[in-house]
Design a protein around this nucleic acid. Structure first.
Length: 415
RNA sequence: GCGGUCGUAGCUCAAUUGGUUAGAGCGCCGGUUUGUGGUACCGGAGGUUGCGGGUUCAAUCCCCGUCGAUCGCCCCA
């Protein structure tokens, strides 16, 4: 009989154990700890949606929609897509669940997202994000609140020092249109100087030429008209309230007038927290205001702002988390002791003490496992101890050993 | 979708210009020690060298393809 071939993990997916899993969990737990401090409620939304949810909201010409979506037909012939981002699905839920009545709605979620891309450092086909949104608020105070939360999160994770907040405004619709027209005119006038890729961008998404990494593009991009020259009074005032709020909250920021966002729906505030510690993937958290999105999904004009942060990217930046380990390892000897130890184990755990017991093995083996587990104490239970109603408690750090009554066990190992 | 580098034991890596039974450390299993771990010593298991094809008397090594990893481009968290 030949052995069956082992199926491989799908490209761009990850299996995490030990430190990798602890890093991931640390990021998520930190987010979950801060979220309620800002009054953001946890929401759950589906991992897949009707394809139109993403195709319409992200913009048909974006790479995410044109070549990176995991789309498939279900048995009824409907086109479905594994979510490539959170915002569109949350906006859909806001409309179809009647969440308008809660506006302004402050919500947060986290989970897996899917994009068909070539994996590289900090980039996966199934990746994970934290996400926070305020839907139904046109006030710059919402932008500020989200940015303060983001900065607080990075600070709590201990990565704030290597990460800087870069901030820009794309203006309101009028500003953005006027600026865009001027940009296109500028780039058209210098098209012989642009890279092939930027010529392609000129047709699809001219704003992206501004942050091109190609040195050939830099002179033309750097000479391009600035949005500030086209800024309406309202849009300018909005941006000033955002930056003023950040200053008041003590959040450091840098203006990057060339920061644009990849997805079509952004207006006004756009921001990225960037680092140089992740190779080509510098963005660790990004977002902005998307006042136009909900209308593209057939809803009423609804202002909204939000951000998402890459959990894997953050997990790579944080310090090594302290590994989890139990306090007590039970070491029973013989069938009678083992039976009694099952009761002791359950009792310790019910009293909130982390305890473990190997499924099998003689004393030597169990002691070895106790040591390897990182437990502080080995609780040794043999027939002699059992007869006396006690157990030997050995401190694995210094080797000292004392005998304590079984009913005092929990107290003896609680420190 | 495009380009660079790399795939040898569970893990990290060796293996002279292509040469005979592919090695080591760690880990794992057993023993020295049938009631004491972290140290030490002894022994053992574990490989179709990612997969498929080609060149050659001979391939872990050279060539092609493929899958995967990794880094970058595009794009993005």
């Amino acid at each position: 009989m030949s052995k069956p071939a082992t199926p491989q993990a799908v490209r761009g997916t990850q299996d995490m154990l030990g430190e990798a899993a602890e890093r991931f969990q640390t990021v998520v737990a930190t987010f979950d700890r801060l979220r309620p401090l800002y009054g953001f409620g946890r929401v759950e939304v589906p991992v897949f949606e009707a394809t139109a949810v993403f195709a319409r909201s992200l913009g048909e010409t974006t790479d995410v929609v044109s070549k990176e979506m995991y789309s498939f037909e279900d048995r009824g012939g409907d086109s479905l897509t594994l979510r490539p981002e959170f915002t569109a699905g949350l906006a859909r839920a806001y409309l179809t669940e009647g969440w308008q009545r809660h506006a302004p709605l402050k919500i947060a979620t986290h989970g897996p997202l899917f994009r068909y891309e070539r994996p590289q450092k900090g980039r996966f086909r199934q990746f994970h994000q934290l996400d926070a949104e305020v839907i139904g608020a046109a006030e710059p105070a919402a932008d500020v609140e989200l940015l303060v939360l983001a900065a607080h999160l990075l600070d709590e994770l201990g990565v704030a020092e290597g990460v800087t907040l870069t901030l820009n405004t794309l203006g309101d619709a009028d500003t953005r249109d006027a600026w865009r027209t001027a940009l296109v005119a500028h780039f058209e006038a210098h098209r012989d100087a642009l890279s092939e890729e930027s010529l392609d961008r000129l047709a699809r998404n001219p704003l992206r030429i501004l942050d091109s990494k190609d040195p050939r593009d830099r002179p033309v991009a750097d000479a391009a008209p600035a949005i500030d020259d086209y800024m309406s009074a309202e849009a300018g005032a909005f941006f000033e309230k955002v930056t003023g709020g950040l200053d008041a909250a003590g959040v450091a920021w840098t203006r990057n007038a060339r920061l644009v966002r990849g997805l079509d729906y952004y207006r006004h505030t756009a921001f990225e927290f960037v680092t140089d510690r992740l190779g080509a993937q510098g963005t660790v958290l990004g977002g902005g205001r998307y006042d136009g999105l909900i209308e593209t999904l057939g809803g009423p004009a609804t202002p909204a702002v939000g951000w998402a942060a890459g959990i894997e990217r953050l997990a790579m930046l944080i310090d090594t988390p302290k590994p989890e380990h139990v306090t007590v390892a039970l070491v029973p000897m013989g069938p009678a002791a083992e039976a009694a130890a099952i009761g002791l184990l359950a009792g310790l755990r019910r009293q909130g003490i982390a305890a473990d017991m190997a499924y099998k093995g003689n004393m030597k083996k169990r002691m070895h496992k106790a040591d390897a587990s990182g437990a502080r104490f080995a609780v040794i239970l043999g027939d002699d101890e059992l007869a006396k109603g006690e157990a030997a408690v050995k401190d694995l750090a210094n080797g000292s050993q004392t005998w304590v009554r079984l009913d005092a066990l929990a107290a003896a190992v609680r420190h």
